[in-house]
Design a protein around this nucleic acid. Structure first.
Lengths: 173, 173
DNA sequence: CGAATTTCAGCGTGACTGAGATTC
DNA sequence: CGAATCTCAGTCACGCTGAAATTC
């Protein structure tokens, strides 16, 4: 078992109060801590639900991305770009997925430098089944109304925009 | 270098559009993906700022928690409880902090099972300096107004509440 | 005795750096 | 030739499980 999962209070609220009495304004610190915590809760829950399929959420994302592509096939570089992960991490993920028979790798006939990862029939089946499981579980995202989900997405997106995560409309680069 | 950090579009918006044409409603999936991404961006930035102090954000949190305690000292179990991390992770973090001379560990005289982690003078100095750096950087949280920060915190907290991260007011256990 | 606390060994995951091989 | 793409080796941080040691 993990540490007692229950305290008689919200540890983040508590930390915020203490923070204010020591350092001042605490709302940013509270947001940061919350993001870390929520990510941890979500990822744990999603990984749990994906465990029967023997994949992690990170690998599930790769499968979904391939599902979306026209030929169920993408060069590794494109995968890294879209998922915003390190090239070596892609290599690693694809390696595991290949070992599980969910994707197949082959050299791009049009550019020998590239390796294409292609969904196998089994990969497609698994993606479909795993997606159903996650959707039935509301992606582990509970407690928010549809409007609140949209609002949350918007706020997160606003931060991403200002952090340069994607170009603003009309931005010139 | 990492993969090109810039795409001509927001990959999460794009994934959402594709998701809807394949699977349906995408707002939950978009929120989940955003949380993962925002956590990644924030953590990378915070760790970067803390690098000169040779600590990670996780270890910084331990130092701050100790700073808040009356005797600048807490049993490891309490640290794990408050920070919501696994006992072995606490052991690991404290080990590193001790090796850096930032905390000292000693057996609790009142309960031999416990180990107390205590801030050293150097640990206090470093915490103060690191906190200044992070606050000056707005904790890497840019692009949101004060009201929006509060709103974001509230939405995240609402999810945490429903995920059982802390007791509701009046909840009986 | 059972329960709590900490530690250790070990596994899995993922991020990253730096270097190489291959191809364009 | 330089640039792009992928891979490999190796490091590091972290989360977890399971088991042991100690103390209450």
């Amino acid at each position: 078992m993990t540490t007692d999962p229950r305290l008689p209070f919200d540890p983040i609220d508590r930390a915020g109060t203490l923070w204010e009495s020591h350092f001042g304004e605490s709302s940013q610190m509270k947001v940061i801590t919350s993001v870390m915590r929520v990510q941890q809760l979500l990822l744990a829950e999603l990984d749990q639900r994906l465990k029967p399929f023997d994949i992690t959420f990170a690998r599930y994302e790769v499968l979904v991305l391939l599902t979306f592509s026209k030929r169920k096939s993408l060069p590794l570089s494109k995968i890294g770009e879209r998922l915003m992960v390190h090239p070596t991490s892609v290599t690693n993920a694809i390696q595991r997925l290949e070992a599980q028979g969910l994707v197949q790798r082959l050299t791009d006939p049009e550019d020998g430098r590239r390796t294409l990862a292609t969904l196998t029939p089994e990969g497609r089946r698994l993606t479909k089944k795993a997606t159903k499981v996650l959707m039935d579980a509301d992606f582990a995202l509970t407690g928010l109304s549809p409007d609140e989900e949209v609002a949350l997405y918007g706020l997160l997106r606003q931060f991403r925009a200002s952090a340069g995560d994607f170009p603003y409309d009309g931005e010139v680069t």
